[in-house]
Design a protein around this nucleic acid. Structure first.
Lengths: 197, 197
DNA sequence: CAAAAAAGAATAAACGTTCATTTTTTTTAA
DNA sequence: TTAAAAAAAATGAACGTTTATTCTTTTTTG
């Protein structure tokens, strides 16, 4: 099984190199030659593991997206109430954005450029289902505002991406307090029974 | 003044072509030759108006960013109360994202990739000052939560970009009602005196 | 008709990808 | 257990394109 392990290592090195280079200078400045060099591999070797550049990027996206959702739901169980469940998932996502900064940066770039194929993007969203289920239940129970999942995502999860990018650019620091404040803002934006004024 | 007008037209055509091509396929698929063709101009002519590709993209970004903030603050005056002022600006931004879809798409791509120079990016944010002033006043008056401007932006303005991109991808429709709901979510996330539970 | 603007062809560098070899690993047979 | 043979994996150089940019010539303008 030595051979198989070496293959896995090489594939991982290529994916890691792709993330790193795309993060540093964008998709347009991550040529195959540089990806190969970063992964300590010949350019030709990439084509043993991936069909081409588009495939490499797509597969990297799927890998990272999967890593993201696995992390997000690792501590979540369905047997808790809506707010607790949401809170647990939210904080895990926040933790991911902070700890797995490279992966999170890569995803934020993928989500906003046409560098990923549409089919692949759809595939990547599938693993988010537990959160959507939670929201559905929350809406049925009258705890969460009856908003589209996209709106709920836009106001609770997506701001974390924005803040993470800002932090990475060095213009802003996400402290523990900032994160707690952000959670409150997130929950306030979607919970029902807001006493206005 | 015919000559000057023709120059302005050509420059605008180039900027428009850049926006269009970058939107369609990303920065890496917007070569100078195609930009020139789209603007009905020779590739060499681009270099009469811009220093090179990076300069063209930077200038396009600044132009669009400026158009964005001009639009956002066009109906805003300082003499109203915090919530009214915020509401006015927020709805103008929402309107921009819907009506000037190409420009908004371009900005969302710029904000999430390293395709724009950092200096240029900083320059582009400057025109957002009226909103930051409003937030400052709101925090002083105890109407808005004492959060960093980045957090406030993340929870009120940035979700609109996310929703606009989702709409452009065809997976979601921003109706009048959705927008009103989004405004409520935005305001709830940053206003003070949330009665929790 | 002079000067400025624009054009198209030309350039060198960089790109993704493939190819002919070499190196490494696995299998075979004693 | 070994050493030769076969298979697989990996390589660096080379390919044909495409790229951003420049150069020389032509066209347009006042």
């Amino acid at each position: 099984m030595v051979r198989l392990q070496k293959s896995i290592d090489k594939r991982n090195a290529l994916i890691k190199a792709t993330i790193k280079l795309v993060n540093n200078n964008g998709f347009h400045a991550a040529p195959m030659s540089k990806i190969a060099k970063t992964a300590s591999v010949s350019p030709a070797t990439i084509y043993l593991y991936f069909e081409g550049k588009q495939d490499l990027v797509n597969k990297t996206y799927l890998e990272v997206k999967s890593s993201f959702t696995t992390y997000a739901f690792a501590t979540y169980t369905k047997d808790v109430d809506i707010e607790s469940g949401f809170k647990k998932i939210w904080y895990r996502i926040a933790e991911f954005k902070l700890k797995k900064c490279d992966e999170a940066m890569f995803l934020s770039q993928c989500d906003n450029t046409p560098m990923i194929d549409e089919d692949c993007r759809k595939e990547g969203i599938k693993h988010l289902q537990p959160l959507l289920d939670l929201w559905k239940k929350g809406k049925e129970e009258g705890i969460i505002m009856p908003l589209s999942d996209y709106v709920l995502y836009a106001y609770t999860i997506n701001p974390l991406s924005f803040l993470m990018v800002a932090q990475k650019r060095g213009v802003f620091k996400l402290t523990k307090e900032q994160i707690n404040a952000a959670y409150t803002a997130a929950w306030n934006s979607i919970k029902k029974n807001n006493k206005n004024k």
